[in-house]
Design a binder for these strands. Structure first.
Lengths: 201, 201
DNA sequence: GCCATAATAGGAACACGTTCCACTTCTCGT
DNA sequence: ACGAGAAGTGGAACGTGTTCCTATTATGGC
Protein backbone atom coordinates (compact mmCIF):
# COMPACT_ATOMS: atom_id res chain seq x y z
CA UNK A 1 0.00 0.00 0.00
CA UNK A 2 2.74 2.39 0.91
CA UNK A 3 3.59 3.75 -2.48
CA UNK A 4 5.56 6.70 -1.18
CA UNK A 5 8.73 4.92 -0.33
CA UNK A 6 10.32 2.10 -2.12
CA UNK A 7 9.64 -1.10 -0.28
CA UNK A 8 12.30 -1.31 2.36
CA UNK A 9 13.95 -4.61 2.81
CA UNK A 10 12.38 -5.46 6.14
CA UNK A 11 8.79 -5.37 4.98
CA UNK A 12 9.25 -7.76 2.11
CA UNK A 13 7.33 -10.83 3.02
CA UNK A 14 8.15 -13.74 0.81
CA UNK A 15 11.54 -15.09 -0.04
CA UNK A 16 10.66 -14.73 -3.70
CA UNK A 17 10.24 -11.00 -3.19
CA UNK A 18 13.53 -10.63 -1.38
CA UNK A 19 15.07 -12.58 -4.21
CA UNK A 20 13.54 -10.28 -6.81
CA UNK A 21 14.72 -7.24 -4.97
CA UNK A 22 18.20 -8.62 -4.83
CA UNK A 23 18.21 -9.45 -8.53
CA UNK A 24 17.07 -5.93 -9.33
CA UNK A 25 19.79 -4.32 -7.25
CA UNK A 26 22.39 -6.69 -8.66
CA UNK A 27 21.36 -5.81 -12.19
CA UNK A 28 21.49 -2.13 -11.29
CA UNK A 29 25.00 -2.38 -9.94
CA UNK A 30 26.15 -4.43 -12.92
CA UNK A 31 24.75 -2.01 -15.46
CA UNK A 32 26.03 1.01 -13.58
CA UNK A 33 29.45 -0.55 -13.31
CA UNK A 34 29.56 -1.18 -17.03
CA UNK A 35 28.26 2.12 -18.35
CA UNK A 36 27.46 4.56 -15.55
CA UNK A 37 24.30 6.52 -14.92
CA UNK A 38 23.09 6.52 -18.51
CA UNK A 39 23.52 2.78 -18.85
CA UNK A 40 21.15 2.13 -15.98
CA UNK A 41 18.08 2.10 -18.17
CA UNK A 42 14.92 0.90 -16.54
CA UNK A 43 14.07 -1.51 -19.35
CA UNK A 44 17.58 -2.95 -19.23
CA UNK A 45 17.44 -3.37 -15.45
CA UNK A 46 14.09 -5.12 -15.72
CA UNK A 47 15.36 -7.41 -18.46
CA UNK A 48 18.55 -8.31 -16.67
CA UNK A 49 16.79 -8.85 -13.36
CA UNK A 50 14.19 -10.93 -15.16
CA UNK A 51 11.23 -8.92 -13.94
CA UNK A 52 8.63 -6.91 -15.81
CA UNK A 53 9.02 -3.16 -16.08
CA UNK A 54 5.93 -2.64 -13.96
CA UNK A 55 7.37 -4.85 -11.27
CA UNK A 56 10.57 -2.89 -11.23
CA UNK A 57 8.54 0.28 -10.67
CA UNK A 58 6.59 -1.44 -7.91
CA UNK A 59 9.82 -2.13 -6.07
CA UNK A 60 11.51 1.20 -6.80
CA UNK A 61 9.31 4.09 -7.85
CA UNK A 62 11.99 5.82 -9.89
CA UNK A 63 15.44 5.40 -11.32
CA UNK A 64 16.77 7.66 -8.58
CA UNK A 65 15.20 5.55 -5.84
CA UNK A 66 16.70 2.52 -7.46
CA UNK A 67 20.20 3.93 -7.61
CA UNK A 68 20.15 5.47 -4.16
CA UNK A 69 18.91 2.18 -2.73
CA UNK A 70 21.72 0.40 -4.53
CA UNK A 71 24.14 2.91 -3.07
CA UNK A 72 22.76 2.21 0.39
CA UNK A 73 23.23 -1.51 -0.02
CA UNK A 74 26.79 -1.16 -1.29
CA UNK A 75 27.62 1.24 1.50
CA UNK A 76 26.30 -1.20 4.08
CA UNK A 77 28.24 -4.03 2.52
CA UNK A 78 31.42 -2.01 2.55
CA UNK A 79 30.83 -0.90 6.11
CA UNK A 80 30.24 -4.47 7.25
CA UNK A 81 33.42 -5.60 5.53
CA UNK A 82 35.59 -3.24 7.51
CA UNK A 83 33.75 -2.97 10.80
CA UNK A 84 35.57 -4.30 13.79
CA UNK A 85 38.98 -3.55 12.38
CA UNK A 86 40.60 -0.61 14.13
CA UNK A 87 41.41 2.37 11.96
CA UNK A 88 45.13 3.05 11.73
CA UNK A 89 46.49 6.44 12.67
CA UNK A 90 47.45 8.24 15.86
CA UNK A 91 45.44 11.39 15.38
CA UNK A 92 41.91 12.08 14.25
CA UNK A 93 43.30 13.79 11.18
CA UNK A 94 45.34 10.75 10.21
CA UNK A 95 42.48 8.35 10.76
CA UNK A 96 39.98 10.44 8.82
CA UNK A 97 42.45 10.86 5.99
CA UNK A 98 43.01 7.14 6.01
CA UNK A 99 39.31 6.36 5.76
CA UNK A 100 38.71 8.93 3.06
CA UNK A 101 41.76 7.86 1.10
CA UNK A 102 40.80 4.22 1.15
CA UNK A 103 37.21 4.93 0.19
CA UNK A 104 38.29 7.20 -2.62
CA UNK A 105 40.60 4.46 -3.86
CA UNK A 106 37.75 1.97 -3.89
CA UNK A 107 35.57 4.39 -5.81
CA UNK A 108 38.27 5.03 -8.36
CA UNK A 109 38.38 1.35 -9.19
CA UNK A 110 34.85 1.54 -10.52
CA UNK A 111 34.37 5.04 -11.88
CA UNK A 112 31.22 4.20 -13.79
CA UNK A 113 29.52 2.83 -10.74
CA UNK A 114 30.67 5.78 -8.69
CA UNK A 115 29.37 8.18 -11.29
CA UNK A 116 25.98 6.54 -11.38
CA UNK A 117 25.55 6.42 -7.62
CA UNK A 118 26.90 9.90 -6.94
CA UNK A 119 24.75 11.50 -9.58
CA UNK A 120 21.68 9.77 -8.28
CA UNK A 121 22.50 10.92 -4.77
CA UNK A 122 22.89 14.54 -5.80
CA UNK A 123 19.83 14.50 -8.01
CA UNK A 124 17.51 12.90 -5.50
CA UNK A 125 14.63 15.01 -4.28
CA UNK A 126 12.51 14.88 -1.14
CA UNK A 127 10.71 11.71 -2.22
CA UNK A 128 13.95 9.85 -1.68
CA UNK A 129 14.70 11.46 1.66
CA UNK A 130 14.41 8.21 3.60
CA UNK A 131 17.07 6.48 1.55
CA UNK A 132 19.24 9.60 1.40
CA UNK A 133 19.06 10.05 5.13
CA UNK A 134 20.09 6.45 5.58
CA UNK A 135 23.22 6.93 3.48
CA UNK A 136 23.98 10.30 5.06
CA UNK A 137 23.86 8.81 8.54
CA UNK A 138 26.20 6.01 7.56
CA UNK A 139 28.64 8.48 6.09
CA UNK A 140 28.59 10.71 9.14
CA UNK A 141 29.02 7.78 11.49
CA UNK A 142 31.97 6.43 9.55
CA UNK A 143 33.62 9.82 9.90
CA UNK A 144 32.83 10.32 13.58
CA UNK A 145 34.12 6.87 14.30
CA UNK A 146 37.38 7.70 12.56
CA UNK A 147 37.57 10.96 14.45
CA UNK A 148 36.92 9.46 17.86
CA UNK A 149 38.73 6.66 19.54
CA UNK A 150 39.41 3.83 17.19
CA UNK A 151 37.20 1.48 19.17
CA UNK A 152 34.29 3.88 19.08
CA UNK A 153 33.44 3.38 22.73
CA UNK A 154 32.51 7.00 23.41
CA UNK A 155 29.66 8.82 21.73
CA UNK A 156 30.75 11.63 19.44
CA UNK A 157 30.11 15.15 20.68
CA UNK A 158 27.87 17.61 18.89
CA UNK A 159 30.95 19.41 17.67
CA UNK A 160 32.39 16.21 16.26
CA UNK A 161 29.16 15.45 14.45
CA UNK A 162 29.11 18.95 13.00
CA UNK A 163 32.68 18.55 11.78
CA UNK A 164 31.86 15.17 10.28
CA UNK A 165 28.94 16.67 8.41
CA UNK A 166 31.11 19.42 7.01
CA UNK A 167 33.71 16.89 5.88
CA UNK A 168 30.97 14.80 4.31
CA UNK A 169 29.67 17.83 2.44
CA UNK A 170 33.09 18.67 1.08
CA UNK A 171 33.57 15.05 0.09
CA UNK A 172 30.32 14.96 -1.82
CA UNK A 173 31.06 18.17 -3.67
CA UNK A 174 34.51 16.94 -4.63
CA UNK A 175 33.11 13.63 -5.70
CA UNK A 176 30.62 15.36 -7.95
CA UNK A 177 33.45 17.31 -9.50
CA UNK A 178 35.30 14.09 -10.14
CA UNK A 179 32.47 11.97 -11.51
CA UNK A 180 31.38 14.75 -13.82
CA UNK A 181 34.90 14.97 -15.19
CA UNK A 182 35.62 18.46 -13.94
CA UNK A 183 38.42 17.46 -11.60
CA UNK A 184 40.85 14.60 -11.24
CA UNK A 185 41.07 11.93 -8.58
CA UNK A 186 44.16 13.68 -7.28
CA UNK A 187 42.18 16.87 -6.94
CA UNK A 188 39.69 15.02 -4.77
CA UNK A 189 42.42 13.70 -2.48
CA UNK A 190 44.01 17.10 -2.26
CA UNK A 191 40.89 19.00 -1.40
CA UNK A 192 39.93 16.38 1.16
CA UNK A 193 43.32 16.64 2.83
CA UNK A 194 43.01 20.38 2.94
CA UNK A 195 39.53 20.23 4.41
CA UNK A 196 40.50 17.64 6.99
CA UNK A 197 43.60 19.55 8.00
CA UNK A 198 41.59 22.74 8.43
CA UNK A 199 38.74 21.12 10.29
CA UNK A 200 40.64 18.79 12.59
CA UNK A 201 43.49 21.06 13.55
CA UNK B 1 31.88 26.13 -35.93
CA UNK B 2 32.69 25.62 -32.33
CA UNK B 3 29.95 23.25 -31.31
CA UNK B 4 31.64 22.12 -28.14
CA UNK B 5 30.79 25.07 -25.98
CA UNK B 6 27.72 27.13 -26.02
CA UNK B 7 28.39 30.38 -27.80
CA UNK B 8 29.82 32.66 -25.23
CA UNK B 9 28.52 36.16 -25.16
CA UNK B 10 31.63 37.83 -26.58
CA UNK B 11 31.65 35.99 -29.86
CA UNK B 12 28.11 36.79 -30.84
CA UNK B 13 28.30 39.05 -33.82
CA UNK B 14 25.04 40.69 -34.58
CA UNK B 15 22.80 42.58 -32.25
CA UNK B 16 19.96 40.31 -33.31
CA UNK B 17 21.92 37.37 -31.98
CA UNK B 18 22.65 39.03 -28.68
CA UNK B 19 18.99 39.85 -28.48
CA UNK B 20 18.00 36.24 -29.16
CA UNK B 21 20.41 35.00 -26.56
CA UNK B 22 18.99 37.42 -24.03
CA UNK B 23 15.42 36.39 -24.81
CA UNK B 24 16.36 32.74 -24.35
CA UNK B 25 18.00 33.31 -20.99
CA UNK B 26 15.12 35.52 -19.87
CA UNK B 27 12.64 32.83 -20.79
CA UNK B 28 14.75 30.26 -18.96
CA UNK B 29 14.82 32.31 -15.78
CA UNK B 30 11.11 33.04 -15.99
CA UNK B 31 10.17 29.40 -16.45
CA UNK B 32 12.58 28.23 -13.77
CA UNK B 33 11.24 30.81 -11.38
CA UNK B 34 7.69 29.66 -11.96
CA UNK B 35 8.16 25.91 -11.82
CA UNK B 36 11.73 24.90 -11.16
CA UNK B 37 13.93 22.50 -13.06
CA UNK B 38 11.11 20.43 -14.53
CA UNK B 39 9.31 23.48 -15.83
CA UNK B 40 12.28 24.53 -17.92
CA UNK B 41 11.25 22.49 -20.92
CA UNK B 42 13.15 23.11 -24.08
CA UNK B 43 10.03 23.50 -26.20
CA UNK B 44 8.60 25.94 -23.67
CA UNK B 45 11.81 27.96 -23.57
CA UNK B 46 11.90 28.11 -27.37
CA UNK B 47 8.25 29.17 -27.53
CA UNK B 48 8.58 31.83 -24.89
CA UNK B 49 11.81 33.19 -26.34
CA UNK B 50 10.20 33.15 -29.76
CA UNK B 51 12.90 31.07 -31.41
CA UNK B 52 12.75 27.67 -33.05
CA UNK B 53 13.77 24.62 -31.08
CA UNK B 54 16.74 24.09 -33.38
CA UNK B 55 17.88 27.65 -32.77
CA UNK B 56 17.70 27.16 -29.05
CA UNK B 57 19.96 24.13 -29.41
CA UNK B 58 22.32 26.12 -31.59
CA UNK B 59 22.77 28.63 -28.82
CA UNK B 60 22.84 26.16 -25.94
CA UNK B 61 23.64 22.54 -26.75
CA UNK B 62 21.69 21.11 -23.82
CA UNK B 63 19.27 22.01 -21.08
CA UNK B 64 22.13 21.85 -18.60
CA UNK B 65 24.25 24.29 -20.61
CA UNK B 66 21.25 26.56 -20.78
CA UNK B 67 20.62 26.54 -17.06
CA UNK B 68 24.25 26.84 -16.05
CA UNK B 69 24.66 29.76 -18.44
CA UNK B 70 21.59 31.36 -16.90
CA UNK B 71 23.11 30.81 -13.49
CA UNK B 72 26.29 32.50 -14.63
CA UNK B 73 24.42 35.51 -15.91
CA UNK B 74 22.41 35.89 -12.71
CA UNK B 75 25.52 35.48 -10.62
CA UNK B 76 27.27 38.20 -12.59
CA UNK B 77 24.29 40.44 -12.29
CA UNK B 78 24.15 39.95 -8.54
CA UNK B 79 27.88 40.48 -8.20
CA UNK B 80 27.72 43.68 -10.19
CA UNK B 81 24.87 44.96 -8.02
CA UNK B 82 26.90 44.71 -4.84
CA UNK B 83 30.42 45.33 -6.03
CA UNK B 84 32.05 48.42 -4.66
CA UNK B 85 30.10 48.35 -1.45
CA UNK B 86 32.25 47.31 1.47
CA UNK B 87 31.21 44.15 3.26
CA UNK B 88 30.17 44.82 6.86
CA UNK B 89 31.87 42.93 9.66
CA UNK B 90 35.06 43.27 11.68
CA UNK B 91 36.37 39.75 11.23
CA UNK B 92 36.64 37.42 8.27
CA UNK B 93 34.15 35.11 9.92
CA UNK B 94 31.61 37.88 10.29
CA UNK B 95 32.05 39.09 6.74
CA UNK B 96 31.80 35.62 5.22
CA UNK B 97 28.73 34.85 7.29
CA UNK B 98 27.22 38.12 6.15
CA UNK B 99 27.81 37.33 2.49
CA UNK B 100 26.52 33.79 2.80
CA UNK B 101 23.53 34.85 4.82
CA UNK B 102 22.51 37.51 2.38
CA UNK B 103 22.96 35.23 -0.60
CA UNK B 104 20.99 32.48 1.06
CA UNK B 105 18.23 34.96 1.77
CA UNK B 106 18.11 35.97 -1.89
CA UNK B 107 17.94 32.35 -2.96
CA UNK B 108 15.15 31.62 -0.52
CA UNK B 109 13.02 34.26 -2.16
CA UNK B 110 12.92 32.27 -5.36
CA UNK B 111 13.15 28.61 -4.39
CA UNK B 112 12.06 27.32 -7.78
CA UNK B 113 14.74 29.25 -9.57
CA UNK B 114 17.31 28.17 -7.02
CA UNK B 115 16.27 24.56 -7.41
CA UNK B 116 16.57 24.68 -11.16
CA UNK B 117 19.97 26.34 -11.19
CA UNK B 118 21.45 24.26 -8.38
CA UNK B 119 20.34 20.99 -9.89
CA UNK B 120 21.74 21.93 -13.25
CA UNK B 121 25.01 22.86 -11.62
CA UNK B 122 25.29 19.55 -9.81
CA UNK B 123 24.25 17.51 -12.82
CA UNK B 124 26.57 19.18 -15.28
CA UNK B 125 29.25 16.99 -16.79
CA UNK B 126 32.59 17.81 -18.37
CA UNK B 127 31.02 19.29 -21.50
CA UNK B 128 29.85 22.20 -19.36
CA UNK B 129 33.16 22.67 -17.60
CA UNK B 130 33.77 26.12 -19.08
CA UNK B 131 30.55 27.52 -17.70
CA UNK B 132 30.94 25.64 -14.42
CA UNK B 133 34.45 26.93 -13.97
CA UNK B 134 33.22 30.44 -14.58
CA UNK B 135 30.64 30.18 -11.83
CA UNK B 136 33.04 28.41 -9.49
CA UNK B 137 35.61 31.17 -9.86
CA UNK B 138 33.04 33.84 -9.13
CA UNK B 139 31.94 32.00 -6.02
CA UNK B 140 35.48 31.53 -4.76
CA UNK B 141 36.37 35.15 -5.42
CA UNK B 142 33.31 36.42 -3.59
CA UNK B 143 34.39 34.39 -0.59
CA UNK B 144 38.05 35.35 -0.66
CA UNK B 145 37.05 38.96 -0.97
CA UNK B 146 34.88 38.64 2.10
CA UNK B 147 37.69 36.89 3.93
CA UNK B 148 40.35 39.44 3.04
CA UNK B 149 40.28 43.11 3.64
CA UNK B 150 37.00 44.64 2.68
CA UNK B 151 38.53 46.66 -0.09
CA UNK B 152 40.13 43.63 -1.67
CA UNK B 153 43.43 45.34 -2.22
CA UNK B 154 45.62 42.36 -1.32
CA UNK B 155 45.65 39.12 -3.24
CA UNK B 156 44.32 36.16 -1.29
CA UNK B 157 46.88 33.63 -0.13
CA UNK B 158 46.83 29.99 -1.24
CA UNK B 159 45.50 29.07 2.16
CA UNK B 160 42.68 31.55 1.87
CA UNK B 161 41.75 30.21 -1.54
CA UNK B 162 41.74 26.67 -0.19
CA UNK B 163 39.48 27.71 2.66
CA UNK B 164 37.17 29.52 0.28
CA UNK B 165 36.91 26.42 -1.85
CA UNK B 166 36.01 24.30 1.13
CA UNK B 167 33.36 26.79 2.18
CA UNK B 168 32.01 26.81 -1.36
CA UNK B 169 31.81 23.03 -1.36
CA UNK B 170 29.93 22.95 1.91
CA UNK B 171 27.60 25.62 0.64
CA UNK B 172 26.81 23.69 -2.52
CA UNK B 173 26.12 20.48 -0.63
CA UNK B 174 23.86 22.29 1.80
CA UNK B 175 22.10 24.01 -1.03
CA UNK B 176 21.44 20.70 -2.70
CA UNK B 177 20.00 19.42 0.54
CA UNK B 178 17.72 22.42 0.68
CA UNK B 179 16.54 22.53 -2.91
CA UNK B 180 15.79 18.82 -2.84
CA UNK B 181 13.68 19.31 0.24
CA UNK B 182 15.83 17.29 2.57
CA UNK B 183 16.77 20.16 4.84
CA UNK B 184 15.31 23.52 5.77
CA UNK B 185 16.65 26.97 5.02
CA UNK B 186 17.54 27.24 8.68
CA UNK B 187 19.58 24.06 8.39
CA UNK B 188 21.55 25.66 5.58
CA UNK B 189 22.31 28.75 7.63
CA UNK B 190 23.28 26.64 10.62
CA UNK B 191 25.62 24.35 8.76
CA UNK B 192 27.22 27.29 7.00
CA UNK B 193 27.82 29.05 10.31
CA UNK B 194 29.38 25.92 11.70
CA UNK B 195 31.62 25.45 8.70
CA UNK B 196 32.68 29.09 8.67
CA UNK B 197 33.39 29.09 12.38
CA UNK B 198 35.49 25.96 12.08
CA UNK B 199 37.37 27.11 9.02
CA UNK B 200 38.02 30.71 9.91
CA UNK B 201 38.93 30.32 13.56
C1' DG C 1 -8.73 -27.69 -2.75
C1' DC C 2 -11.05 -23.16 -3.87
C1' DC C 3 -11.73 -18.52 -4.21
C1' DA C 4 -10.59 -13.58 -3.54
C1' DT C 5 -7.01 -10.66 -3.79
C1' DA C 6 -2.46 -9.16 -4.64
C1' DA C 7 1.56 -9.49 -7.45
C1' DT C 8 3.68 -10.08 -11.88
C1' DA C 9 4.14 -10.27 -16.98
C1' DG C 10 4.01 -8.11 -21.24
C1' DG C 11 3.72 -4.32 -23.63
C1' DA C 12 1.36 0.01 -25.41
C1' DA C 13 1.30 4.85 -24.64
C1' DC C 14 2.90 9.33 -23.16
C1' DA C 15 6.36 13.18 -21.97
C1' DC C 16 10.33 15.57 -22.70
C1' DG C 17 15.33 16.02 -24.14
C1' DT C 18 17.58 15.68 -28.30
C1' DT C 19 18.52 15.12 -33.30
C1' DC C 20 17.54 15.84 -37.96
C1' DC C 21 15.69 17.52 -42.21
C1' DA C 22 13.63 20.52 -45.75
C1' DC C 23 12.64 25.05 -46.45
C1' DT C 24 13.10 30.14 -45.77
C1' DT C 25 15.41 34.29 -44.37
C1' DC C 26 19.32 36.92 -43.28
C1' DT C 27 24.12 38.59 -44.01
C1' DC C 28 28.09 39.80 -46.24
C1' DG C 29 31.76 39.97 -49.80
C1' DT C 30 32.17 41.39 -54.44
C1' DA D 1 22.30 44.48 -56.27
C1' DC D 2 23.38 39.62 -56.29
C1' DG D 3 24.55 35.13 -55.09
C1' DA D 4 26.50 31.84 -51.64
C1' DG D 5 26.69 30.29 -47.32
C1' DA D 6 25.23 30.88 -42.56
C1' DA D 7 21.40 31.20 -39.46
C1' DG D 8 16.67 30.50 -38.35
C1' DT D 9 11.95 28.13 -38.84
C1' DG D 10 8.75 24.49 -38.21
C1' DG D 11 8.06 20.16 -37.21
C1' DA D 12 8.82 15.07 -37.53
C1' DA D 13 11.23 11.44 -35.29
C1' DC D 14 13.85 8.91 -31.82
C1' DG D 15 15.32 7.34 -27.01
C1' DT D 16 14.41 6.70 -22.39
C1' DG D 17 11.85 7.47 -17.88
C1' DT D 18 7.31 6.83 -16.42
C1' DT D 19 2.40 5.47 -16.47
C1' DC D 20 -1.26 2.49 -17.49
C1' DC D 21 -3.94 -1.45 -18.93
C1' DT D 22 -5.15 -6.34 -19.50
C1' DA D 23 -4.14 -11.09 -18.88
C1' DT D 24 -1.88 -14.41 -16.10
C1' DT D 25 0.13 -16.33 -11.93
C1' DA D 26 1.12 -16.69 -7.03
C1' DT D 27 -0.69 -16.46 -2.16
C1' DG D 28 -3.32 -16.81 1.90
C1' DG D 29 -7.82 -17.67 4.35
C1' DC D 30 -11.66 -20.86 4.51
Amino acid sequence: MNALNSLSQEELGSAAQRERRKRILDATIALASRGGFDAVQMRAVADQADVALGTLYRYFPSKIHLLVSALGREFERSQAAMSGKPIPGDTAEQRVNYVLGRTTKILQKDPNLTEALTRAFMFADASVSTEIHHVGMMLTSVLTEAMGTRTGDAEPTEEEIAIARVIGDVWLSSLVGWVTGRSSATDVETSMSVAVRLLLR
